[in-house]
């Protein structure tokens, strides 16, 4: 379970990185499209058609952010119950909390753009929390390797 915990935490961090990449990719594509004379209004934005090739990045950002990452965070929380790592539950709960905040800020940012700035800041917090959780896993595993009383832990780290 320690490995599962570690992998899930790393996955959250990787996903946050993907999110940052996607949203900037989408923005860059949008600006290039406008630079070249393209016009975007609500009708084109909602048409489901693709005006510029990088449009997919926004779709990825939305699906990742509202579905994939929350599911991973939830699985991380569940794995934390079983992972014998000190503070695992706390670490996972923090990730879940920051994910909730992140999705809320993302959606509210549509109406109040300033909250979009906090969305960007919170992404860094979420990334840090996820990395910290993943490292916590590693630290605990190392500690356990050196624990002569618990040889079972060694097997798990190898896996």
């Amino acid at each position: 379970m320690k490995v599962v915990y570690k992998v899930l935490a790393s996955l959250v961090a990787a996903e946050v990185a993907v999110q940052a990449m996607m949203v900037v990719l989408g923005d860059a594509g949008l600006f290039k499209y406008v630079e070249q004379g393209g016009v975007i209004d609500k009708a084109t934005a909602e048409s489901g058609g693709i005006q510029f090739p990088e449009f997919f990045a926004f779709v990825v950002h939305g699906v990742n952010g509202m579905m994939v990452i929350p599911v991973i965070a939830l699985l991380l929380l569940i794995s934390s119950f079983f992972a014998k790592i000190p503070g695992a539950v706390k670490g996972a709960a923090l990730v879940v909390l920051l994910v909730v905040v992140q999705v809320s800020l993302g959606l509210l940012g549509h109406q109040i753009p300033a909250l979009g700035a906090l969305h960007g800041l919170n992404a860094l917090l979420l990334f840090s929390a996820a990395v910290h959780a993943a490292r916590r896993g590693r630290g605990a595993a190392n500690a356990e390797v050196s624990d002569p009383d618990r040889p079972g832990a060694r097997v798990e780290t190898v896996v």
Partner: peptide
């Protein structure tokens, strides 16, 4: 006639 899903000017 706006047959789209979003407002248009």
């Amino acid at each position: 006639i706006n047959t789209e899903n979003g407002q248009t000017p």
